[in-house]
Amino acid sequence: MLNNFIFIVLPYAALALIIFVTPYRYFSNRLTWSAYSTQFLERKTLFWGANPWHYGIIPVLAAHLLGVIFPGPMKAFLGNEFNLLVFESIGLALGLFAVFGCLILTLRRVNTPLLKRVTFASDWVLLYLLLAQSLTGVYVATFMRWGSQWYLHTAVPYLWSLLTFNPQIEYVTDFPLVFKLHAAGAFVIVALLPFTKLVHMLYLPFDFLKDPPILYRWRTK
């Protein structure tokens, strides 16, 4: 029952929300598409929060995605013991870095009066959720060794089975509860993404890398 909820209901709900709500928000009101930076109001602690958080979480997230997209090459790469050791160590370090950053970000919101006006329920939900998510992640990485390897043989085929609408949850149902929490957290975060400021990670600018520096817009041409 719980397994069905976590591994079938949640992921499909999240998928539906992110696929339909994100473009809706993009096309209906782009005025809310922002990371809602608070650096202007408080910058000292933000530096120690935002940098570790993003530098930690982005590579870790990318590694998760890499496993899903290129399971074959990843398996080959991590088959080498040395590679696996280095990969896991870096991953764990980055995870701890992210936890540290997220903790700072959360405490910062608690302790800075100026931020009260720009802190909404969604900010708390996100920060606590992401903190919990990175903590369960670090726990899994520490106590369920070689996750980057077994992830490819369990979670990845499961995720693919979701995408092909043939969910095979046997791949993941035997895991301990922390892992299930980590998975559930991930789906909840994806589900909330289109409704919150997390959308900021979806619209990454790359055009400017090739554009000439000064952009003109002609209304008559």
């Binding site: 600018p205 400017f208 554009d211 000064i214 952009l215 003109y216 817009r217 209304r219 008559t220």
Partner: peptide, 8 residues
């Protein structure tokens, strides 16, 4: 993001 522009 190329949000700023100069009107031609």
């Amino acid at each position: 993001s190329r949000a700023l522009y100069k009107r031609g």
